[in-house]
C-alpha cells in the first residue's frame, strides 16, 4: 500500500546535491519523484526511485546518511476539488499530513501526489475505502 521514499541528508554546500545525483546516475537509478526540503544549514532530499535497494546501497557506499520512509502515492483526480476531497478523508480519520509533493508524469490522466502522513497504513485504508486510487512502487516505475 505504501511506497518507499529515500530521505537523504544533504549539507548546504555547493556541489552536494549534484554528488547525490551523480552517485544515483552511476548506479543506473531512475528518479520517479524528487523533492528537496531545506533549512539554514542542511537539506533533506526526498526521492522515490525505480530501484530503492540499489539506490540505498550506492548511497551507503558513499557515506551518505539516509532513511527509508513509507509514504503514499495517491492518484488525485485532475478536477476542481480533487485534492480537497482526499484531504477531507484524511481529516475525518484524524490523520495528519506532514508534507506532500507531486510526481511529474505525462503518462497519467490524473495527478499523482506523494503524501507523508502520520499513520500511512491507516491512511491508505481510509483512502482506498473511498475509492481513492493508490499507486504502488511498480506503478510509479512504469510512469517514468
Amino acid at each position: 500500500m505504501t511506497v518507499k521514499q529515500i530521505s537523504v541528508f544533504v549539507e548546504n554546500k555547493i556541489g552536494n546535491l549534484a554528488e547525490v545525483t551523480k552517485i544515483l546516475a552511476d548506479a543506473g537509478i531512475n528518479l520517479c519523484a524528487i523533492s528537496l526540503a531545506d533549512t539554514k544549514n542542511f537539506g533533506v532530499l526526498r526521492l522515490i526511485v525505480d530501484d530503492s535497494y540499489n539506490a540505498a546501497t550506492a548511497l551507503k557506499e558513499h557515506g551518505f546518511i539516509f532513511s527509508i520512509t513509507p509514504v503514499l502515492a495517491v492518484s488525485v483526480p485532475d478536477v476542481p476539488g480533487g485534492l480537497y476531497r482526499i484531504l477531507t478523508l484524511l481529516e475525518d480519520n484524524g490523520i495528519n499530513l506532514e508534507y506532500l509533493y507531486d510526481v511529474n508524469s505525462q503518462k497519467m490522466d490524473s495527478a499523482c501526489l506523494i503524501f507523508k502522513v502520520e499513520r500511512p497504513e491507516d491512511a491508505g485504508k481510509a483512502l482506498t475505502k473511498h475509492q481513492v486510487h493508490l499507486l504502488c512502487q511498480e506503478d510509479l516505475k512504469s510512469l517514468i
Binding site: Q5, S7, F9, A37, T39, F42, V44, R46, I65, F66, S67, T69, E98, K116
Partner: peptide
C-alpha cells in the same frame, strides 16, 4: 557530524 541514528526524515525532529 550527522549520524544515521540522529537522522530523520522530519526536518522539525532534526531542528
Amino acid at each position: 557530524e550527522m549520524t544515521p541514528e540522529m537522522f530523520s526524515d522530519s526536518l522539525s525532529a532534526i531542528a
